[in-house]
Design a protein around this nucleic acid. Structure first.
Length: 316
DNA sequence: TCCCAGGGAGGAT
DNA sequence: ATCCTCCATGGG
């Protein structure tokens, strides 16, 4: 913690393992393709992200030393030099705790299913410390979820970065660096979908993204209200949005709204659940999602995350 | 050239 | 309810 009583523009501090509820694998978590935001920028063993905290853009770089069980998290942060300084350390610590799911009781998760579910427990050793990320920006989470449909992680991340470059606000930080924020609904709502498409190579996904942006701007879509509703209720409303089907809706609810009973079913989850829980019998995606929710309840999102990572990395 | 990627919409059966 | 096909785009 910085030793100054006045707000600072630069900051370095640690988050010790004791402040985290169980193990943490930072690299595994940040590389697990969760859809609430573009992947953080990787540089060797450290990762950099930019977010707006209390109205102030903050850029932070994280690295983990030690192993998944005994570690410390090193944080370096800079905030924008053009806005009022905020009490950086406290708000950033709270932010990281939320975004990286550091309060989730992973040991309880493992203990609960290690004997109750032999299939899921297969993933526990190799993925130990993998945590479920949450976005702090609902519009960004919904947009990234829309980008991810029938797309590769690499491609939708590229499109997201291009969106930031062309339509996001530029922020200059006190260390002299410059970054683009994720675009606001206002900036996307006025675009011609064809322009958005040609500049970001996001294909047909430009149409629903512009349409949803316009709904947000016009007040026809209240994402905060949506995120606070009960799961089934929110799901029904989400499915009415253009370009939003069961998978995108569940991604928004899980990674954006932090509703841990949501379990997005993509091709990987569909495959591995069919294979491991239904003896390879073809099961519909809807039934797969319901199966995960009913079996894992408030841990369905985590079960999905572990099975997804396990399947995607070739252990299927 | 074909197939695939953290799918969804519209239609036919 | 389940099964087509098409939808852009780039990588293998």
């Amino acid at each position: 913690m910085a030793g100054l009583s006045t707000p600072t523009l630069h900051l370095t501090f640690e988050i010790s393992g004791a402040e985290v509820n169980g193990p943490l694998n930072l690299t595994g978590t940040l590389l697990s393709a969760q859809t609430c935001e573009p992947e953080w920028v990787k540089d060797g063993a450290s990762f950099t992200d930019v977010e707006v905290l209390n109205g102030t853009p903050v850029k932070y770089t994280l690295s983990q030393t030690g192993d998944s069980d005994r570690f410390s998290l090193n944080v370096r942060a800079t905030q924008a030099d053009t806005v009022t300084p905020i009490e950086l350390a406290l708000s950033l610590k709270e932010h990281l705790s939320y975004v990286l799911g550091l309060k989730d009781d992973l040991v309880l998760f493992y203990r609960r299913f290690v004997e109750e579910d032999e299939v899921l427990s297969l993933t526990f050793t190799r993925l130990r410390g993998l945590r479920l990320m949450r976005g702090t920006d609902l519009f960004q989470a919904l947009t990234c979820s829309l980008l991810s449909q029938n797309n590769s992680v690499r491609l939708w991340n590229r499109s997201a970065r291009l969106m930031m470059k062309y339509y996001g606000r530029v922020v200059r930080f006190s260390d002299g660096s410059q970054e683009f924020l994720f675009p606001r609904a206002r900036a996307l709502a006025r675009l011609n979908p064809r322009e958005l498409r040609s500049k970001t190579s996001m294909g047909y996904r430009a149409n629903p993204i512009v349409n949803v942006s316009r709904m947000v701007v016009d007040g026809d879509l209240d994402l905060i209200d949506l995120a606070g509703r009960q799961y089934e209720d929110a799901l029904d409303l989400l499915l009415e949005l253009p370009g939003v089907g069961p998978k995108v809706a569940d991604c928004f609810l899980l990674y954006g709204a932090g509703q841990l009973e949501a379990a997005p079913v993509d091709v990987w989850i569909h495959r591995i659940v069919s294979k491991l829980y239904f003896r390879g019998e073809k099961v519909s995606r809807l039934r797969t999602a319901r199966f995960l929710r009913e079996r894992f309840r408030e841990w369905a999102g985590y079960a999905q995350l572990y099975l997804f990572d396990y399947a995607r990395r070739g252990q299927l």
